[in-house]
Amino acid sequence: MNALSKLTATILAVASFTIASPARALDKPTGDVILTVRGPDLKNANAGDTAQFDRDMLQALEKRTGAMETPWTSGKVEFSGPLLRAVLSAAGAHGQKLKIIALNDYSAEIPYEDATKLDTMLALTMNGKDMSVRDKGPLFLVYPFDLDPSLFNEKYFARSVWQIKEIEVSE
């Protein structure tokens, strides 16, 4: 896929989402909250001014599946999970920067475009199995290394946060 068509597809996807999901509050999570999205002005906040997601809510969002190699796994591994932009859209977030925070308080700041322009996903499963904390779970920010090999470098490795618990959106 060349850059232009990819961009067009992304724009279309974003557009369709905005049209398909008008500002409506998120349902309250019924299971364990595994992800909290914070932001200055979340349109779809469901817990105070944050949006909280359980596993089922995330599973329901637009997702992608990709098989790829990463520096932290051996051999080709299949990741599957909601697209980051789907999650952000579900939360009604908008901004310039994203701060991805892990369980161990490791965090990485990534530009918002990484969500909109790249098919970045919040992987829920690895090789079809849910990821435990011991296996970098519950959420793992996976860049589309399979679609764009040029992403395979230290810059994106540092952004590939696992054991994610929170996403902070800022301007």
Partner: peptide
């Protein structure tokens, strides 16, 4: 337990990472 799990995952990284 989460702390242990994190340590455990780190152990995995040490073992498996490239």
């Amino acid at each position: 337990t989460t702390r242990y799990d994190i340590l455990y995952s780190r152990m995995n990284i040490l073992e498996q990472a490239n």
